[in-house]
């Protein structure tokens, strides 16, 4: 019992770390492509971010199960790259179908983002990190959820800032991606400040 308690505690710490100090976007730069292209408006950014939280939590857990119970017994660990991608793609497709069938309204706001997620490196990255760091099942849940929330926070904040940026004068060569990256750098700087909290 005590063991499970400490596992849950560890999962919570890992979750917190994944949101703030080890934010997958701001420290390992995963998911940069949609981050720079979809962060123009708060509403779309929130939609994509929400979809990422959902998909990331479930795919890391599914991939953990697949890795532990399929690939390791078969000694095919190196196949994880292919298997993880297939699982992610299949999961996204499945969710798209379910949402389309039961909630057309949600589909309209979330559905267009789902195909974008299959090629989001952050999703695959989270699964690969989970394998390399040898997380247990419970910690994996915390990690997957935390990474998703971290990504969500980063893109939401970025979209908020960029909306204001429309009215400011930016040097020509820096417009678009350039200024986005500089803002992301400042955000990363701020997020590093959270490290002291974890002690």
């Amino acid at each position: 019992m005590n063991n499970i308690g400490s596992e849950v505690w560890l999962a919570m710490v890992t979750c917190f770390a994944a949101v703030f100090t080890n934010n997958i976007l701001l420290t390992t730069f995963l998911g940069m492509c949609p981050f720079t292209s979809v962060s123009r408006e708060v509403k779309t950014a929130a939609g994509l971010g929400g979809a990422v939280v959902f998909v990331m939590t479930f795919t890391t857990v599914l991939n953990w199960l697949a890795y532990k119970y399929v690939l390791i017994p078969l000694e095919l660990e190196f196949f994880r790259f292919i298997l993880f991608i297939i699982i992610i793609a299949a999961f996204v497709q499945f969710v798209e179908m379910v949402i389309d069938r039961y909630s057309p309204k949600l589909y309209q706001s979330l559905g267009i983002f789902l195909p974008l997620i299959t090629v989001n490196c952050a999703i695959l990255g989270a699964s690969l990190f989970m394998v390399i760091r040898q997380y247990s099942f419970i910690v994996t849940i915390g990690y997957g959820f935390g990474s998703g929330v971290g990504w969500f926070l980063a893109i939401l904040a970025m979209a908020g800032i960029r909306q204001r940026l429309n009215e400011s004068r930016v040097p020509e060569g820096l417009r678009g991606p350039g200024i986005t990256l500089i803002i992301a750098g400042l955000m990363a700087l701020a997020f590093i400040g959270f490290t002291g909290v974890l002690n």
């Binding site: 350039g178 990256l181 500089i182 700087l189 590093i192």
Partner: peptide, 11 residues
Amino acid sequence: VMPPGAFFALA
């Protein structure tokens, strides 16, 4: 050499 540096350098 920390992550923010990568953003500044790339920009």
